[in-house]
Amino acid sequence: MSARGAAAEAITAARVRKVYETPSGPVEAVAEASFRIARGDFVSILGPSGCGKSTLMLMVAGLEPATAGSLRIDGVEVSGPQVDAGMMFQDPTLLPWRSVLDNVLFPIGMRRRVSAADRERAEGLLRMVDLWGFRDKRPRELSGGMRQRVALARALIGDPRILLMDEPFSALDAITRDEMGLALARIWDTTHKTSIFITHSIREAIFLSDRILVMGRRPSTIVEDIRVPFERPRQPSVEADARFNELYLHLKASIHRTTAGAA
């Protein structure tokens, strides 16, 4: 893994902290998080719900300002929405009144006029996510997994420098979820986008990632940083590897420790 562009750091978080002011007093969403993500790395943030991983992603996206600490993308301090970040959420958040193709083009249309080149790129992305035949359909005519694939194509339309995904598969059934994992791994292999993938599925994290950050709860901070030893492109067969299971048990214990401490 180190062969691939280890030189440049795409994302640097130094003692990032987030406290929300609420009517019932301040709520600490992220106590302190520090990490570095190299360009072209796929990094999962794994943790129990309520540990602040979504907040951390929103801060990287520039949608929530950090209360303290420093967050840099390509050396530049994040101070506002990162137009160069593609985003995916738990819900596909497609526009029901637009066709699949027009949904993919949505981020472009929000900024400027859609050009013929944009259209071509969107068509290419739809081929990549295997939805070419569905380009003129409305989202309601698609299955949950297909909708998330539209959301992935939409996230990639602006050729973003980083890809931020907040539990994008957690609303899907187990079988679709596995298929989506495979599809994402395959697509990632062709794009090599620097990615942050938030999940609470340990298997998904191991299968997809170059690195896994485990986030704890109370205090909400990064408790572990593990490199995943498997080769790319990833094959489903890695799950049969003894190290996969070893890693799985290790991470499971690690998460268990953070939740046990809090409860």
Binding site: L63, F89, T93, F106, M110
Partner: peptide
């Protein structure tokens, strides 16, 4: 999250109304 996406892609408040909030 959809509104977050609108901000993230650099859409103006007006565009967000015209293309997302009003049709919705």
């Amino acid at each position: 999250d959809l509104l977050r996406l609108c901000r993230a892609v650099g859409g103006s408040g007006w565009k967000t109304y015209a293309q997302v909030r009003f049709p919705a």
